[in-house]
Design a protein around this nucleic acid. Sequence first.
DNA 1: TCTTGACTCTATAGTTACTATAGAGTTTAA
DNA 2: TTAAACTCTATAGTAACTATAGAGTCAAGA
Lengths: 131, 131
Amino acid sequence: MKIGELARRSGCSIQTIRYYEKLKLLPIPSRSEGNFRLYDIKIFEQLKFIKRCKDLDLTLDEIRKLLSIKSEPNQECDDVNRLIERHLERVEFKIAEFRQLRAQLISLRQACSENNKAVDCGILKQLTKDS
Amino acid sequence: MKIGELARRSGCSIQTIRYYEKLKLLPIPSRSEGNFRLYDIKIFEQLKFIKRCKDLDLTLDEIRKLLSIKSEPNQECDDVNRLIERHLERVEFKIAEFRQLRAQLISLRQACSENNKAVDCGILKQLTKDS
DNA sequence: TCTTGACTCTATAGTTACTATAGAGTTTAA
DNA sequence: TTAAACTCTATAGTAACTATAGAGTCAAGA
Ligand SMILES: [Zn+2]
Ligand SMILES: [Zn+2]
Ligand SMILES: [Zn+2]
Ligand SMILES: [Zn+2]
């Protein structure tokens, strides 16, 4: 299959696929006579793997690590478990951070409910003054 | 005050301050005889304003908008209110997204509690299979 | 057969919000 | 005087793409 079909079927854009190839997250595909990339099912599946990881917000470096472990079936998998654990911690941290942010934004929003001149805007005042 | 002191007092790095100047988020400061940037209290306060906005995760473009409104005291402030409202919505969306992510990661973690060979790793299996 | 449109190619630049570095000049304190 | 600390400009790097230009390839219809 050519790159356009791979893109459609994987949910990644064409440029992203070429980008992954450059980063060696995907193997170099064969080429047609006219120099078009030709993909087989194995590459399609690897790309789907990457996509699933991306949807979990893993970084490409983390994904590279997973791919490398996956490619050596006899390696121990505790690195995988640790990686997911650490990633989960980061996600929880972000949730906490954004909750704080939300609280601050809600209080900020309250500072100016009606329509004012800029000079009287409660929000701008709040952002200007030392907390 | 020179850039180092401004950096210490504002909590922004020196490079960041120069970067903001280039983006015109900060006015061009005067210079000493030896060509060092010299800042007055007004610029310090503008930088603090920017810093407070950044801490709320506003983008530099959003901050630029706020600064422009702030600089015209007679303009209506409803753009400010809308901007904060939209930003809050984005933050809430991110919270929801990350919560979903967390749930998925927790279920993924469960798939491999003990130590296995890579080929038997429940996490890798989960990431490999179609959901 | 010709041509049109859809597809693909490479290489390069742009995005966001910085951080890091090199290599130079300036200031301050011992 | 000299060394440390500071500042200057310009440039490149970061993450993970997206967008573009300008060229070549391929399939179908007239
Ligand atoms: Zn992670
Ligand atoms: Zn207002
Ligand atoms: Zn926003
Ligand atoms: Zn495992």
